[in-house]
Simulated assay, not measured.
Amino acid sequence: MLIYLIIIWKMDKYEREPLINVIVHFLWGAFGAIFFAVAGSSFFNFLFATKNNTPPLIVQSVIFAPFTEEIAKGSFLLKTVTDKKFDNLIDGLVYGGAIGLGFGMTENFIYYLSYGTTFYAWLQLVIIRSGFSAVMHCISTAALGAFLAIAKFSENSIKFLLPIFGFLIAMVIHSIWNLSVSFVNTYIWGTIFIFLLIIFFISLFKFFIVKERKIILRELTEEANMNLIPFSHLSILSSKSRLKKGWIDERIRKLYVRTAIKLAFRKAQFKISNGYKKLYYENEIKQCRNLISDLLSTNIK
């Protein structure tokens, strides 16, 4: 799960979140979300139990577990998305994915202890749960994170519906996987479903990266028109070329790139914000411009 976590973190190409923040979300999934998910499932089992029987396992697996677990995992994102440093679309995917991976890690550990009674049984669990179940948890919560991010940066009048839609998608993903592995003759469909989910997840990541590239180009073009940034830097700052040496003094390259990208995102957020957040972003924009001006005035090639 930690390997998956690092891969997702590194997929954020333009402005990676602090690794410590990503780990905090991972730990929430591993401990906090697990606790509330177990408590929620127990409550629903008690609520819908008859005099002599608990609800059927298929109901617990396909309805109760997805509902309670996705709420438990996603609740932390509701706080994260309000943070001013949650500043681009990919943040939702990264933080949501981190929570899902943490949850999957602890759930896997419980399964290994409970059902890995022989080496063969343990090996099956490792392959199935590490390669499929935990990935499902990652993608389902990342999907919710994506919709929360879209809602935050959208100016659409019905954006308040997006978090609900995101939760429903997360729950449906979870339910389909649990249903597919509940029967021997449907297991292959579950495997195919996960592969399709992985393709969807990677495609969504790439789509958001393209959106961020467009934001960077749009906002920095305005800065170039104001003579803050050279026009020749626009295509470099928004592409992999920014990682290469030689196009600007190497002593300032990394700081210049980080500041320029930060400036672009802060400007985009400023345009859709109001109140104290607008003032916060305005101050950040001024700081970024001043730093870029200082860097370029003495070090530009």
Rank of each mutant, 00 (worst) to 15 (best):
2 L>S: 02
9 W>D: 02
9 W>S: 05
17 E>K: 13
22 V>R: 09
28 W>E: 07
28 W>T: 08
29 G>H: 08
38 V>S: 11
45 N>A: 06
50 T>H: 02
52 N>I: 04
52 N>Q: 06
61 S>I: 03
82 T>C: 04
83 D>P: 00
93 L>E: 01
93 L>N: 01
97 G>C: 01
98 A>I: 07
99 I>T: 04
102 G>P: 10
103 F>L: 11
112 Y>G: 03
113 L>Q: 12
114 S>T: 15
117 T>V: 15
128 I>A: 14
128 I>F: 12
128 I>Q: 11
133 S>R: 05
135 V>W: 02
138 C>K: 04
141 T>Y: 12
154 S>H: 11
158 I>Q: 08
164 I>F: 15
166 G>L: 07
188 I>M: 10
188 I>F: 14
188 I>Q: 08
197 L>F: 03
197 L>R: 02
199 I>K: 03
200 F>L: 10
207 F>E: 03
210 V>F: 06
212 E>C: 05
219 E>V: 09
223 E>F: 05
224 A>Q: 06
226 M>H: 13
237 L>K: 12
241 S>I: 02
252 I>K: 04
255 L>P: 00
255 L>R: 15
261 I>A: 03
263 L>V: 08
264 A>L: 06
274 N>I: 09
275 G>V: 06
276 Y>C: 00
280 Y>N: 07
282 E>A: 12
284 E>F: 00
285 I>Q: 04
297 S>Y: 11
299 N>I: 01
